[in-house]
Amino acid sequence: MVRALRQAKKLGLRELARRAELDPGYLSRLERGLIRDAGDRQVQRVAAALHVPVDVITEETP
């Protein structure tokens, strides 16, 4: 979900990582589903950087 939102907003991975104050490698792993239990703070940062509610980021896709 994060990757789709990022791409829809025409942001690069490094730019989103910069805006969310996260490591680009961490964000990449999060996008690829390699991090299952991301911390609340990290999710809040990504949501804020994308200007979306947290629940949009955390909802499961079928």
Score class of each variant (00 low, 15 high):
residue 50 L to G: 02
residue 34 L to Q: 14
residue 60 E to Q: 09
residue 10 K to W: 04
residue 18 R to P: 00
residue 58 T to D: 03
residue 14 R to E: 14
residue 25 G to E: 12
residue 28 S to P: 02
residue 36 R to K: 15
residue 28 S to E: 03
residue 51 H to G: 03
residue 30 L to F: 15
residue 3 R to N: 05
residue 49 A to I: 03
residue 30 L to Y: 14
residue 18 R to V: 04
residue 32 R to A: 14
residue 35 I to W: 07
residue 39 G to M: 06
residue 19 R to I: 05
residue 15 E to S: 08
residue 58 T to E: 08
residue 8 A to W: 03
residue 38 A to Y: 04
residue 4 A to S: 03
residue 29 R to F: 07
residue 61 T to A: 11
residue 55 D to K: 02
residue 49 A to Y: 00
residue 6 R to G: 07
residue 20 A to I: 02
residue 55 D to R: 01
residue 50 L to M: 10
residue 48 A to G: 12
residue 48 A to H: 11
residue 43 V to L: 15
residue 46 V to A: 01
residue 46 V to N: 00
residue 59 E to S: 13
residue 17 A to Y: 07
residue 51 H to W: 00
residue 15 E to N: 06
residue 17 A to R: 03
residue 5 L to W: 12
residue 15 E to Q: 14
residue 13 L to Y: 05
residue 50 L to C: 10
residue 61 T to S: 11
residue 26 Y to A: 08
residue 44 Q to K: 12
residue 36 R to E: 13
residue 16 L to C: 09
residue 29 R to Y: 10
residue 41 R to I: 11
residue 22 L to D: 05
residue 43 V to C: 08
residue 30 L to T: 03
residue 61 T to D: 09
residue 14 R to L: 07
residue 31 E to N: 12
residue 16 L to T: 11
residue 24 P to E: 06
residue 15 E to D: 13
residue 19 R to D: 07
residue 42 Q to P: 00
residue 1 M to C: 05
residue 19 R to M: 14
residue 4 A to P: 01
residue 57 I to L: 15
residue 21 E to V: 06
residue 4 A to H: 01
residue 12 G to S: 15
residue 23 D to F: 07
residue 54 V to P: 01
residue 25 G to D: 10
residue 49 A to Q: 02
residue 12 G to A: 10
residue 13 L to R: 15
residue 33 G to V: 12
residue 33 G to C: 10
residue 47 A to F: 08
residue 54 V to L: 00
residue 12 G to Y: 06
residue 57 I to Q: 06
residue 53 P to L: 08
residue 17 A to W: 03
residue 6 R to Q: 09
residue 8 A to L: 10
residue 35 I to A: 06
residue 52 V to G: 06
residue 28 S to I: 02
residue 32 R to C: 05
residue 7 Q to A: 08
residue 12 G to E: 12
residue 16 L to F: 08
residue 28 S to H: 05
residue 53 P to T: 11
residue 46 V to G: 02
residue 39 G to T: 12
residue 30 L to Q: 03
residue 36 R to Q: 14
residue 62 P to M: 04
residue 40 D to P: 05
residue 55 D to E: 12
residue 9 K to E: 09
residue 17 A to H: 07
residue 36 R to F: 06
residue 11 L to E: 04
residue 62 P to R: 14
residue 20 A to D: 02
residue 45 R to K: 15
residue 18 R to S: 13
residue 6 R to M: 10
residue 11 L to F: 08
residue 39 G to N: 13
residue 55 D to P: 02
residue 2 V to S: 04
residue 1 M to V: 08
residue 8 A to Y: 04
residue 24 P to F: 09
residue 40 D to C: 05
residue 43 V to R: 13
